[in-house]
Structures are given as C-alpha cells and as structure tokens.
Write a protein that binds this DNA or RNA. Structure first.
Lengths: 331, 331
DNA sequence: CTGTTAGCGCCTTCAC
DNA sequence: GTGAAGGCGCTAACAG
C-alpha cells in the first residue's frame, strides 16, 4: 500500500531517523541530505501515518466536540467559536455524535484516548461514562450539565438571568397574564430559565397560573401542542414565554391557525435566537445566548488545562435580549 | 497515566495476549480467566488505547465527512443520511473542516490515513491534495465536484434537471421574462442549474436577456446586491430564478425594500430548500435536492468499495419541485 | 486454553 | 550530521 518512512529512508540512502528528522524539519540534518530525503518522499508519494505518530508521541493534537446528533440542532455560532480558537492554537478539531450511547463514536473517542480533550454537548452520554473517561491531563468541558470532577469543568450562558430578561420584557410591555412553555424537566437549561421566569413574576407581584405552565419538550411539535392545549382551555394569556425558539415556532403556528394574531392579540418571546427567528413574520423576539463566546471559552479552557494551569470549575456568561416583532410595544 | 493492557494482565495474573482475548471477547479463553481479566480491568479503570489498536490492525473503522466549515452552511439532511448509514454498518463517523487548506484537519485526516474513507464536501481542498491522498483501498466520495481517479467517485443531485424544473414552473405560471441569479462561475452546481435554465428557456422559445443574468455568488448578500442592480437597470422581469435559496433570501429583502411585492409583482424561485425557506412570508418556492439520499448513497459507496466491490464513478439523483408561495399561480 | 513473540509505523535518546 | 535501537500499546500468529 502506502510507502513508509522506511521506504523513504531506503530510497534516499539514509537511516530512518535521519529521514524522520529531515521530514519533520528538526535541525541536525545537512541541507543536502534533507533534500535527498524530501525528493525521495515526493517520489514515493509518502504520507506519514498519523496514527503511528500519535501513538509514539502519546498525543493527538486534536480535540473533539461531542454532539448528540451531527445532523442537528445546529449550533452554528458555538461551533464557530470552538473552531476558531482551536485553529488559533494549532489544534485539530473533530465533531462526532453520541448516537448509540455507550458504543457511539463520541464515547469511543474519549474513552479510547483518541483525542487530547473534549467539549461535550450531548445529553445522552451518561455522567458515569464521562467520569470514567475523565482522567488527569485529559480536559473535558461540559456545556450541557455540571459534573463534579477535578478535570471536568462547565461553561454556560446565564439562563436564569435570561429568563428574568425575557419575563421582564413582557412585563414592561404591560402584560400580566403570562404563560410559560417549558422544555424537558431533566434539562438544566429549562430549569434555570424557569427559575428566572418565577423570580421576575414574583418580583412584580404577578401570579403564575398552573394551567399556563405548559410542557413543550423543546421541540417545534411540542410547542405546537402546548399552545393547542392552552387554547382548548378557553381563556388565553396576554403573553407566552417559550423556553426555546423551536417551541415558539410551533406555538406561533398553532396561534395562527386559531386566528390569534401575534403580537396584537398575544405577545410571544422565545429563547436562543435560532436562525429561523429572524425570518418569521413578525420576526421573533428572543433571548440570545452568547454561543460564540461559550464555544470559544470552552476550548480556551481546554488549552489552559492542557498547559497545566488551573481553571475554575464553572463559568457563566451573560445573555442578551433581542427585541423584534412578536412582543407588543410597551403601553 | 492510564492503565495499559499490561497492567491488567499483570493484575489478573495472565499473559497480555490472554487479557487481549478476554477483553475483546474472542473465543479461546475460559470463563474463569475471562472474569478475572474483566475484574482486573474494571478495578484499574482500564480503557484501551484506540490509537495503538488502530495502528496494529491498520484500520480505524471510522470514516470522515470533510466540510469546508463545521459552523455552516448546514447540511442537516445530508449529514443525517451519512450518519445513519455509517452507524448501520458499524462504522464511526467524524466531521471535520478544511479551514486552513493544506494544513487543515480535513486534509490531515485523509493524508495521514487516520480514517478508512472520506466523503468530501469542501471546495477549498484542491484537487491535487485529494488525488495525492487517494490510494487503493481508500475510498473517497466527492460531493462537490467530479475527479478522475479510480478510487474516487462522485454523487450529485441532478442539478440540470432541477434547473429545468424550476424554469418550467415559472413558465407554466405564465412568465416569459425570467432573470437568473447565478452562483460562482467555478461551481459545477451553478453551471448545471444554469444549463437547465437555458434548456428550458430555449425549449419554450424564450430569450435570455443578458442584463438579467445576474451574479450572486451563492450568498445572501450577493442575492441582495444582484437584485439591487437589477432594479437599478429600470425594467424588472416577471420572475427570478435564484440559483440557490440563500441568494433568494437576500433578493427578496431587496425586492421588499423597493416595494416590489412577491409574488404579485414578481415571482421568485430558489434552489436547495434550506430550513429558512419554509419560514419566509410568503414561503419560498424552491427545488429540493435529495440530500438525505445523497449522503446515504455516498457512505454506501464507501462501504461497497471497502468490501472490494466495484462501483460506477458517478451517480445522479433526482430533484423535486417544492411549490410554495413565491410563484404566482398559473393564469 | 494460555503464553511467547513479532511487529504496526513512527519518534527520539544515545552513541559515534 | 548520521545511524542503531528501543518502545508507544495493542493484536494475532504460532507454540505449547
């Protein structure tokens, strides 16, 4: 099959070590020998075997981004952050999915030491597995939950503050009857956002109606169904806070179908600022997470740890309100 | 750092090979010994070094999807196809980007034999590089261009037929003056779509106005500018065929700004059916590529080749018209 | 059923 | 400046 460094050395008439030095541009080789080696390599179309190299150096120079599904949802800005910082540090980045759980590519890569560090945004990898893979000198940054382990840290947007932001925006617009459509109970993000919602409501002396605490599961379909249910109950609230944009998309569809117009009859706010938000009519008011920064910080931490510096176990970044067209103007 | 198989063997009081057999569940080991080994492994929290294993077996059991940028654009359906078929065949899948060209992760992975096969959708990797990496027993499937090499094949949607489909849809709606906003001249996809456009126009005896041959570069910004230019020229056509949806998005923005209403004053059709298309108002009529199938077929071919079967060098899949709201109804 | 052994391909210390 | 040799951790003959 492919030529090995041995073949190159043989063809160039030098020892393997010399070929290695020449190819890797490490001093101690005369220009003449170096050229001979390089010519030989080119002639044989030699490409080093990265695996052998990694094994020898026990270092892969690549970090992995573990996603629950490569085909979506789409963390564009986050990935951009991860990507740019990795590149700037001269590291390679690969993305893989945790579909298949214990036997998934994602798990295989962290367990089998195929990368030097990992960023995890894959709720379906159990804590136990991550803890088993975590080891000294192998940094892991969690993006979807907190985990107690000394070489694992956690970066998140301040979802609670975001929840407060969203809720107060609705309140400032004059709304008092506000519904909340939640994500899965297991989600920390949902929990935090909901806490923010509750805090803001309490602070302004507003009551939370249990029947307006709907469940949407973070999916478009779930948002749609939640709103259908809400409508079926008769009285509709003045505003709805969807714990993420995808649910808002579905919810707005349901509202439209019922002839309830946004934002004249009801205000809507989402969370995340996904790409579609801007293209809706009216465009979706939402809370933007600092995705890029989260991603950038995550890799940054990886490198810090790799360099032996210590980092705090948890980081929290600010969110920002993106005011668009689905919340009626303040009175 | 981590325990190696040697440590496990020592602790279990057996030879390394026995430990290996036991761990990999290959016959020839008594249940008793097997258990001993497994217990020892668990006790040491042993995880095999995948790199060493790959090196030994000279096989990685993973295939790579090379993208020009991990952070977008978003080939959701395509990736889904790739992902599912890979998984079904028991292979791992990783995605990496070709940002950085020759020194990118993508190039490194194919050149250095870090994967068993690759699917390439990364126009910024030069042909030469791919040809250098292509070798017997290393299948490469191209998705963005055709390449002459016996272990490289090509899968595409039938862009030409799609171009015809789009154009005829416009013509059937009664339009005769049709503009075309093209992608970059270097793009094969654009070329094929344009060919389809020309064929359909000719077939129906319609003439293509040079001034309505605009350039949009496949970007939203480009589409916007193309339409601005078109408007500046005075007379506007009855319909515009954007060679992709992103340009249509920008173009529609420009149209709106000029007070030209879609589809009453002008019809618009795109190509690709990106996620946003459905959320526009009116929603975008477009041509859908069989993305999922393209991805699925691509990996499928990889496996065929890996198994030593021969495949044809090129595959073409059908496109489909998605009729929505931006083309006025037929007269 | 279990142990010994020879590499996979490369890097790197150590002598020369 | 160059070469010989050991070994990264694992697998898979081959013996026993």
């Amino acid at each position: 099959m492919g030529a090995t460094i041995k073949d190159v050395a043989a063809l160039a008439g030098v020892a393997v070590s010399t070929a290695s030095y020449a190819l890797n541009g490490i001093g101690r080789v005369s220009p003449k020998t170096r050229d001979k080696v390089i010519v030989a390599a080119k002639q044989l179309n030699y490409q080093k075997n990265g695996i052998a190299s990694d094994l020898k150096r026990s270092k892969t120079n690549t970090i992995a981004l573990l996603l629950s599904d490569l085909s979506g949802p789409y963390y564009s800005r986050l990935i951009k952050g991860v990507q740019e910082v990795s590149l700037n540090n001269g590291y390679d980045l690969i993305a893989c999915s945790s579909i298949g759980g214990e036997s998934s590519t994602a798990v295989k890569f962290i367990k089998e030491k195929r990368v030097d560090g990992a960023i995890i945004l894959a709720h379906n990898i159990p804590d136990r597995t991550i803890l088993e893979s975590a080891r000294e000198g192998f940094p892991i940054v969690m993006l979807d939950r907190r985990l107690e382990h000394e070489s694992v840290c956690y970066v998140e947007a301040d979802n609670e503050k975001g929840g407060i932001l969203a809720t107060e925006h609705l309140i400032e617009a004059g709304h008092r009857k506000i519904a909340y459509v939640s994500g899965p109970a297991s989600s920390k993000h949902n929990k935090d956002r909901y806490n923010g919602f509750v805090q803001a409501m309490n602070k302004h002396g507003l009551t939370i109606e249990p029947r307006w605490n709907l469940i949407g599961n973070f999916t478009e379909e779930g948002g749609y169904r939640a709103v259908k249910l809400m409508i079926a109950q008769g009285e509709i609230p003045e505003a709805v806070f969807f714990a993420n944009d995808e649910m808002a998309l579905g919810g707005i569809t349901a509202l439209n179908e019922a002839g309830i117009v946004v934002p004249d009859d009801i205000s809507v706010i989402g969370f995340d600022d996904i790409v579609q938000a801007r293209f809706l009519t009216p465009s979706l008011t939402t809370v933007r997470q600092p995705d890029y920064e989260v991603g950038a910080l995550a890799v940054h931490l990886i490198f810090q740890i790799l360099k032996g510096e210590t980092v705090s176990p948890q980081y929290k970044l600010d969110t920002e309100l993106v005011s668009r067209g689905t919340v009626r103007s303040p009175l």
